[in-house]
């Protein structure tokens, strides 16, 4: 190995470390923001006592989670029970290998790309790997040996499968417009023309609805429906294993926001401000949107969920592809 390869390798390792530690740390501010948004939407204040405006509340929660007893039910499938949180966590982290947060920047006279790798099948890779995440939910619910958990995981698997189709089809519309599966190319092509939202308004709506279902958030969080299932698939989990599920959920939310920005809103392109700032602004707007939706809408019923998925979103997304194809010809 010559020096250049060594530097490249070191750079990749550094980027991996930075991104994964960022992702591990991200739920800390996100839970705080989420609780603040929840509070203010309900005319409350949210957490207020730990630190300035309760900003240290997630840290306190984290300490609490760490010191809680890690309970494994007697009749649970021990091995799968321990494996499930990791299975739900790892794929969602893996997807960030191709998620770009910006274009090249120059550090010490060397060009550094703000993504770990620019796969030419980026979007496909993300959808495929994120799809593995559902196994964590299914196995977690199955291994818990509890009715509620099992119901939750069955619901979530049905939901994930039906909405993943619509989600991918919505993404295909974008791919058809930009002629590339690579996320960096998608952003660059939007820089050249306009944002994809102008070409794909229907695709965007389908993407947002299916994305909400994909990351198991209200109004589609059937898998952890408090009213009927106690806590759904993670009802038997406690301590750090539970927090792994929560972490996976938050990172999935970030992933959906990032993808929405990259696919439809021009990624890091924008006037005046530096690209990374634009990217952060857009992504946080989407994260706020997801939280806003969560505290506005009630949960859908299970049959409604399936109806929306199969009878409305899937045909609509096919129509979207058809229309895009016609326009391209």
């Amino acid at each position: 190995m010559d020096t250049n390869t060594c530097i490249e390798l070191a750079l990749i390792i550094i980027k991996v470390i930075i991104i994964s530690s960022l992702l591990f740390a991200l739920p800390i501010p996100l839970t705080w923001i989420e609780r603040k948004v929840a509070g203010h939407i309900q005319l409350r204040l949210g957490p207020f006592r730990v630190g300035w405006h309760g900003i240290l509340q997630p840290v306190a929660d984290m300490i609490k989670l760490m010191f809680k007893e890690d309970i494994i039910p007697d009749k649970a499938d021990k091995w799968l029970f321990k494996l499930a949180p990791i299975i739900s966590l790892v794929p969602i982290f893996l997807t960030f290998a191709t998620v770009p947060v910006g274009d090249k920047i120059t550090v010490f006279g060397k060009e550094v790309t703000l993504y770990i790798s620019d796969m030419n099948v980026g979007i496909l890779y993300i959808l495929a790997v994120a799809g593995i995440g559902v196994y964590g939910l299914i196995l977690g619910g199955w291994a818990s040996n509890s009715k509620y958990a099992l119901f939750g995981s069955i619901r979530s698997s049905a939901q994930m499968i039906s909405y993943e189709l619509a989600l991918s089809f919505a993404a295909i519309g974008v791919v058809m417009v930009t002629n590339s599966l690579s996320l960096v190319d998608i952003v660059n092509s939007q820089k050249a023309t306009t944002w994809n939202i102008c070409y794909q308004p229907l695709g965007f709506i389908i993407y947002i609805i299916a994305g909400l279902a994909e990351i198991n958030r209200i109004p589609f969080d059937l898998s952890e429906d408090e009213g009927t299932l106690a806590a759904g698939y993670h009802v038997e989990y406690s301590s750090m294993r539970f927090s792994f599920f929560m972490l996976a959920e938050y990172v999935a939310m970030v992933l959906m926001s990032v993808l929405a920005v990259v696919l439809f809103f021009g990624g890091w392109s924008g006037p005046i401000l530096p690209p990374i700032v634009w990217f952060v602004i857009k992504v946080s707007a989407f994260i706020y949107f997801f939280m806003w939706v969560r505290f506005t809408f009630p949960r859908y019923r299970y049959d409604q969920l399936m109806t929306i998925g199969w009878k409305i979103l899937l045909p609509l997304s096919l129509v979207n592809i058809l229309i895009t194809g016609l326009f391209l010809i």
Partner: peptide, 21 residues
């Protein structure tokens, strides 16, 4: 409509009395 209502609430002042702090 629902979203705009909750946005309005989000931006308005909260009713909480910060007792006892």
């Amino acid at each position: 409509k629902g979203l705009s209502l909750t946005l309005k609430y989000n931006l308005s002042k909260s009713f909480t009395i910060r007792y006892p702090d």
